[in-house]
Design a protein around this nucleic acid. Structure first.
Lengths: 216, 216
DNA sequence: ATAATTAATTAGGACTATCTAAATATTTAG
DNA sequence: CTAAATATTTAGATAGTCCTAATTAATTAT
């Protein structure tokens, strides 16, 4: 499996994550930042290898083997992101490009040991779940805090904007990844929220709420 | 710079490390496990980019720019080897293949932070020195313990064979990387050595001595 | 239902890195 | 010093990935 093939499978997986429908050539081309004709070339190759199902002009979908491969790449990508943030102190928006390269390193042992070294994390720094080694992928529900229903609760698992300004706000208000957050009330006037962070009451603006991902 | 170009420059550097003479096409082909004709192709490319000096039929040598590039790759390779051994608990002979891949990841920030994370190591797990960021490369003298002169001393910086059998021998006899070792005497009869390890006297066989690298 | 628009595919080319086989240069041995 | 052996280069082919331009299929709008 070449890096390019891995990237295509990952893109197809991510495009199909929401809907079961088949994925169009143009959608893949846009995501991969290539031309549709290049996509057609690769599609044929992946189809020959039985990694995707392909009917001309009708788009593609992953086979089981293809899906497992895509999840494996996604797993590597997200584990490396955790490594970069937790061990090398990258910020959450610096990691993507480097992880795009690291995800293609071929060594099963490497990724197993990295997983262990990181303490078997369940989510990456953006709050997205990390597929398990056997390709299981608990697609838990991730919402912005601003989209939560009053009275519901969840775990803070990531941020959308990871500017230093926002991260220092998090620090000052003692909100960290893994904290349990309950939405107590919404203010009509300005959309600000009354929340509880680990049983500590706090009031935050709607801008802040739009930046915090919560696992329900 | 493509991974392939980096590999060629690294190979040329390593072949030229000892002698100042120019490096032959066949020598490069053997090291890279490619055919001489492939080497000629790449040589032309590197020469066009002014990374090597090339005269037809006369072999090549690195330019200053080429040497800096080779040292940069070597630096990455050896830092990754340290990471794999120290942080992910690979054994010293499992790391090479993976480091061959990791050395081509493009991110200056990544390698700087990795260096810091590892505590700015001076040598890799095989005892070879790690070039500094600015391309300086203290080529210190590395010898097998068996090659040392009676009465001389040095620091244990690596092993040749890293089988578990040998590593457990090291453990049992409390010899570790970084330990100061003095060669007190050689036994005529069987070649065994009397040494001091951090002022603790010890007798070891010649087989053991052939496996330990010492920095003088 | 057909024309216009959009999407997808094909044809053909470029570039990288490799190879084999043939040709040429250099070195070595008699 | 020339012939044989060895080393190196050239020529031409292949595989992978991408591209542009042209063609064909599918969808949309009138």
């Amino acid at each position: 499996m070449t890096p390019s093939e891995e990237n295509y499978l990952k893109a197809i997986y991510q495009l199909g994550e929401t809907s079961k429908a088949s994925i169009s050539t143009n959608a893949i081309a846009e995501k991969m930042k290539t031309k549709p004709s290049s996509v057609t070339d690769m599609i044929k190759k992946l189809s020959d290898k039985k990694l995707i199902l392909y009917r001309k002009y009708k788009g593609v979908s992953l086979t089981d083997v293809g899906r497992i491969s895509a999840l494996s790449t996604l797993r590597k990508h997200r584990l490396w992101e955790v490594f970069l943030v937790e061990k090398l102190h990258f910020t959450w928006d610096e990691v993507h490009e480097v992880a795009e390269q690291l995800e293609h390193i071929r060594s099963e042992q490497l990724i197993d040991r990295l997983d262990q070294h990181l303490g078997f994390p369940r989510t990456d720094p953006h709050g997205d779940p990390i597929p398990s080694k056997d390709g299981n992928y608990k697609k838990f529900i991730k919402k912005l805090l601003s989209e939560m229903a009053v009275g519901s609760e969840g775990i803070c698992i990531g941020v959308k904007d990871s500017s230093t300004a926002f991260l220092s706000f998090m620090d000052k208000n003692r909100i960290a990844l893994g904290d349990k957050i309950t939405l107590l009330d919404k203010e009509e006037f300005d959309g600000s929220l009354h929340i509880k962070v680990k049983d500590r009451p706090l009031q935050i603006s709607s801008q802040i709420a739009c930046n915090l991902y919560i696992e329900l």
